[in-house]
Amino acid sequence: MVQTNNLTFKYNNKEAVFQFPNITLQEQESLLILGKSGIGKTTLLHLLAGLLQPTSGSVVIDELDINALSHSQLDNFRGQNIGLVFQKSHAITSLSVYDNLKARLFFSKKNINRTEIDILLEQLDLTNTKYSTINELSEGQLQRLGIAMAVIHGPKIILADEPTSSLDNENCSIVMHLLQQQAQKNKANLIVITHDARITSSFKNVLTL
């Protein structure tokens, strides 16, 4: 369960204060957050991921106020329970696809066997690139790897930041399908923030900022 209470955030060098509506998501529920550029979508996502500390208010995940956690506890919590997908996918450039997934598990302190990694790679059509370096991947492969990195450790929440903004219609629906499929498989909440109205129909819950 994900719940936010009276979340506000102010950047040090800016006057404006972002005020966010409360969010409550039950287990396995998904949410699409729509909004124009500069409205604070990414800020909200980073608050939900614990990457930013709110000026006021709180983020509660599974009855745990993540803002009350110490830095190391928050790192641990984030590593084990949250998966992040970015508009432009990234991975650790010095590692291969397979090593990236192993590194992800290492940082999350989770252990899954080689077969499960192979199954995930197959689901995301990345089997042939298992030992490729990041620079050898196409944009589409990189995007799918980003999803794999976000779900490999079985997170409780998948947070996606503009995952489809730069994609054509076909790839947009492929990525959304994969995200929802993986969220369902992991029984995780999926929260997508975007200004891309094409994906509105994929969600029951839509919040406009």
Binding site: A49, L51, H71, S72, D75, N76, R78, G79, Q80, I82, L84, H90, A91, I92, T93, S94, A103, R104, F107, S108, K109, M149
Partner: peptide, 18 residues
């Protein structure tokens, strides 16, 4: 140069000390 890699590692659960 690899600040994004390092930031990614933080999102994966790596601590600053790590």
């Amino acid at each position: 140069e690899r600040s994004f890699d390092l930031a990614l590692m933080r999102t994966y659960g790596a601590s600053n000390f790590q």
